[in-house]
Amino acid sequence: MTDERRPRLAARAAPYLLVAPAWLWLALFFVVPIATILSMSLMSGNLYEGYSLTWEFGNYAAAIGTYWEQIGRSLVYGACATVLCILIGYPCAYWIAFRGGAYKNAYLLLLLLPMFVSFVLRTISWKAFLADEGVILGTLKGIGLLPEDAYVLNSAVAVVFGLAYNFLPFMVLPIYAVLERMDHRVVEAARDLYAGPVRAFTRVVLPMSLPGVFAGVIMTFIPTSADYVNATVLGGAHNTMVGKVIESQYLVNNAYPMAASITFVLMAVLLVGIFSYARALGTERVMEASAR
């Protein structure tokens, strides 16, 4: 009896054993840190006397009251960068998927090639490009297309451009994945049923690729809203994003509870934003509307 049961038990346990490393990983690097930050956000005290859990919900009120501007700015910049990524990334993904031919993988590699250089380094190099008398602005000013006092660096425009530049591949890849899988006969069917090239795109290709756009929006909006490198390097003092605030609260002011509560506010806002986006602009409904 026991001889028979042992292999069966092992067989039943096998799937759990196989996912165990993944669970362990998640527990160690996701659940524990989240719980730590959550408890930290409800503590009071300071670095020298130590922190203790006093269920200090006032931290949240203070975080929102003091930093609502930076949080709001982060969301606006993130949204602008995401829209810019769609506008640039969709045609890019479309072109690679439908016109790339035998060189699709080469084009994808080109798209990802900049990622091999450090993120911070790439952002800093934009500083040189966008400098007031740099390659772009200097030239445009030289031929009189821009007034002498025009600037881009240290403005919201520079931050949004930097964000869009850095996160573009995260928009292109999911859209490309959907377009690449698409049966091109479906486009031909639309053309055959009296849809011109534009109608075939808006009625068939676009709605069918919305799941990719949806994934791309999530993959760019979340990291861009939480990013602080671009704002710090390209934005100057007046365009601080919430990421920068969290960083300086942790590392400069050592105000751990404050930093933790801002982190949670940002997380909550992003989660609520993503869920309401999924409900309001759910791909299912958009696709149904496009069928008319």
Binding site: D183, V186, A189, R191
Partner: peptide, 19 residues
């Protein structure tokens, strides 16, 4: 262009609009 021709096609893979 195909959208201006008075013929319609039934594709081998059907090519129905899945959405």
């Amino acid at each position: 262009a195909p959208d201006r021709r008075d013929v319609n096609m039934v594709f081998q893979s059907y090519a129905l609009f899945p959405h």
